[in-house]
Design a binder for these strands. Structure first.
Length: 430
RNA sequence: UCCUCGGUAGCUCAAUUGGCAGAGCGGGUGGCUGUUAACCACUAGGUUGCAGGUUCGAGUCCUGCCCGAGGAGCCA
């Protein structure tokens, strides 16, 4: 008998097939039994009818518990009463293992309990749907860049020094030296951009920040493109195209998952480019008009990001931040050197920043001056300064946080469900 | 690190002013021919986070600690 996956079940109408999976739930009503099986690709209901209550299949059915692993065989039938529209008339159940006392029941559980059982929670329908959206988002990102002639250039996770002196790094040892887990592949991207023109890196990043909010993870995934000779304007358009591409793909390919999550797709479907663009000055003015107490010169905190993304029903691009709030390598505006040519993309519906980036300093003298101002050790950045010494080039790039993007697409209240095993403040189990 | 709230059965929660620790789900047993987190009946299940204190009597009040959640700060 042919082993098939539930997602393909409609191709096997009226045929005898085999499904391998786990018991999601079961119900019985005297001489009818219903078995809900999941196999990783979907859910299907199996039925058993028999007049004799001692029917052998009934006895096997009665032994089954939630998450027991089984192989079931039977005939596929279309039935509008079944969840999913198809069901299997079960002729045989082969038990691989009876699961005892599966901790996650079909009723309510608290977040701490579910996080403690994250390795099992992944099997639940909504978690499955979120991670399908994540996988689709990642696939879309790679297709987007690969399709535009970008080269994937993996950057190191173990690094000899801080990309930034200001943020908190995870320190480890590298034989007899100190080493740190990467916070960003950007500096290395600038080197590969000079070799390949258009590059991107995609990998995990680590930040030892004591952040305990709905939008921070200790370990998260970020895609970072870097384009040689691109300006701030060029990179804003690239970011818009990327966001539109991800949106289109998820809306097209994962509609069912958004439905499972009860995520109304309408606000996402309304999004179109170009996104509204504001300078920092304009944004501060607008925030003050809407009651924010932000002082000019302050970086946006969570409440400002949320407020800003609620004012528009589109993602918003904010540019020209005060240079003092931004990284040392940000190119200053030619007219107003106190402003940095940076851009933050705020997702709609209150989700805040999903992209941060900008144009990098390409002038050697200016970069050396900035390193001094930020008290960064020149020796550690020797190779980085070489990029300005040998054929320097204006260039720009950004980083898009995968988890924040997925949380927005799925409209989740917290980022922690957007990655299979989140690393949270003080929490590394399971 | 700070502020707020919480910790009672495997899970989610209730318990009046300090006065017999209880329900639903899950487990077990039985019933039901179309269930949709099925339903109905019965049943087993407790170191009330830990340590101390007040009291005739503490889940409830007090002190300290531990753990968790929400928010703030922090945060290319």
């Amino acid at each position: 008998m042919k082993w098939v996956y539930i997602e393909n079940i409609s191709e096997y109408k009226a045929q005898e097939v085999e499904i391998r999976g786990w018991v999601y739930n079961k119900r019985s009503s005297g001489k009818v039994r219903f078995l809900l099986i999941r196999d990783g690709t979907g859910l299907i209901q199996g039925t058993i009818f028999h007049a004799d209550k001692d029917f052998p299949l009934f006895r096997i059915f009665d032994e089954l518990t939630q998450e027991s692993s089984v192989i079931i065989r039977g005939k596929v039938r279309e039935d509008s009463r079944a969840p999913g529209g198809y069901e299997l008339e079960i002729s045989d159940i082969e038990v691989i293992q009876i699961a005892r006392d599966y901790p996650i029941t079909p009723k309510e559980h608290s977040v701490p309990f579910l996080m403690e059982h994250r390795h099992l929670w992944l099997r639940s329908q909504k978690q499955h749907a979120v991670l399908q959206v994540r996988a689709e988002t990642i696939r879309a990102i790679r297709d987007f860049f690969d399709g535009r002639g970008f080269r994937l250039m993996d950057t190191p996770i173990l690094t000899p020094s801080a990309c930034e002196g200001t943020t908190t790094l995870f320190e480890t040892t590298y034989f007899d030296q100190k080493a740190y887990l990467s916070q960003s592949g950007q500096l290395y991207n600038e080197a590969t951009a000079a070799a390949f023109g258009k590059v991107y890196c995609f990998g995990p990043t680590f930040r030892a920040e004591k952040s305990k909010t709905r939008r921070h993870l200790i370990e998260f995934w970020m895609v970072e493109p870097e384009v040689a000779f691109a300006t701030l304007q060029d990179i804003i358009e690239l970011g818009e195209d990327l966001v539109m591409y991800i949106l289109g793909r998820v809306l097209e390919e994962r509609k069912q998952d958004l439905e499972i999550l009860e995520r109304d797709p309408a606000p996402l479907e309304k999004i179109s480019k170009p996104f509204p663009r504001l300078t920092y000055d304009e944004a501060v003015k607008l925030l003050k008009e809407h009651g924010s107490k932000i002082a000019y010169g302050d970086d946006f905190g969570a409440p400002e990001e949320t407020l800003l993304s609620k004012i528009y029903d589109q993602p918003v691009c904010v540019t020209h931040f005060p240079a003092a709030t931004k990284a040392f390598y940000m190119q200053p505006d030619s007219g107003r050197p106190d402003l940095a040519l940076g851009v933050d993309f705020m997702a709609s519906e209150g989700y805040g920043e999903i992209i941060g980036g900008g144009q990098r300093i390409h002038d050697l003298e200016l970069l050396e001056k900035r390193l001094k101002e930020f008290n960064l050790p020149r020796e550690a950045y020797k190779w980085y300064l070489d990029l300005r010494k040998y054929g320097t080039f204006p260039h720009s790039g950004f980083g898009l946080g995968v988890e924040r993007t997925v949380a927005w697409l799925c409209k989740l209240p917290h980022i922690r469900e957007t990655i299979p095993f989140p690393r949270l403040l003080y929490k590394i189990y399971p």
